[in-house]
């Protein structure tokens, strides 16, 4: 299990780098926010994978908070894009 989790976490880290590359490059604000949303989901995945290795359930609150923040953050930016373009 240890090896599996390490492989998974390395892969998720690489994926987060791809997402950060898109966040840096854009070109639209929507691209950036979707990329950052993805980074948070990947972070949650890494935390859950860590939970599989250590058999602790401490990761559960963190998982829920990250999922909530990712959701509300993305919604707020979507609203902002609409508001900015309607001006």
């Amino acid at each position: 299990m240890d090896a599996v989790v390490t492989v998974a976490q390395l892969a998720l880290g690489a994926a987060a780098l791809f997402a950060l590359a898109r966040a840096a490059r854009g070109p639209t604000l929507a691209d950036r926010i979707i990329a950052l949303d993805l980074v948070l989901l990947l972070l949650a995945g890494g935390v859950a994978a860590h939970g599989a290795r250590t058999d602790t359930e401490l990761f559960v609150p963190l998982l829920i908070v990250v999922a909530l923040v990712a959701f509300t953050g993305t919604l707020i930016v979507a609203r902002f894009i609409e508001w900015r373009d309607s001006k």
Partner: peptide, 25 residues
Amino acid sequence: LLFGTALSVLAAWGLIDFPSALARM
């Protein structure tokens, strides 16, 4: 776990690879 990881990595690679903003979504 590995299946989920693979899907996540493909999602991130799609963000790099796909041609337009909506497609990347």
